[in-house]
Amino acid sequence: MKKLIYPIFLCCLLISVSCTENEDPAMACGVSDPIENLPWLKQMAENASSGGLSEFAYIAKAKYKGKRVFYLGSCCPNCSWALILYDCEGKTLTNEIGFDDLEDNEVIWQTADNQCAFSE
Score class of each variant (00 low, 15 high):
K3P: 03
I5A: 13
I5F: 15
Y6P: 01
I8W: 10
C11I: 15
C12K: 04
I15W: 07
I15Y: 06
S18A: 14
C19H: 13
E21W: 13
D24L: 06
A26H: 13
G30M: 09
G30S: 06
V31H: 02
E36M: 10
P39C: 09
W40Y: 12
W40L: 12
W40D: 04
L41N: 08
L41F: 10
M44T: 13
A45E: 02
A45K: 06
A45G: 03
N47H: 05
A48T: 00
A48P: 04
A48L: 14
S49P: 03
S50Q: 13
G52A: 14
L53P: 00
L53Q: 06
E55Q: 04
E55M: 01
F56V: 02
I59G: 01
A60K: 06
A60M: 13
Y64V: 05
K65S: 14
G66E: 08
K67H: 08
F70L: 06
Y71V: 03
S74L: 06
N78V: 11
C79L: 15
C79A: 15
S80E: 10
S80P: 02
Y86P: 02
Y86M: 07
C88N: 15
G90P: 02
L93A: 02
T94S: 08
D100L: 08
N105A: 09
E106I: 05
D113F: 03
Q115R: 09
C116V: 05
C116L: 01
A117Y: 11
A117C: 10
F118K: 10
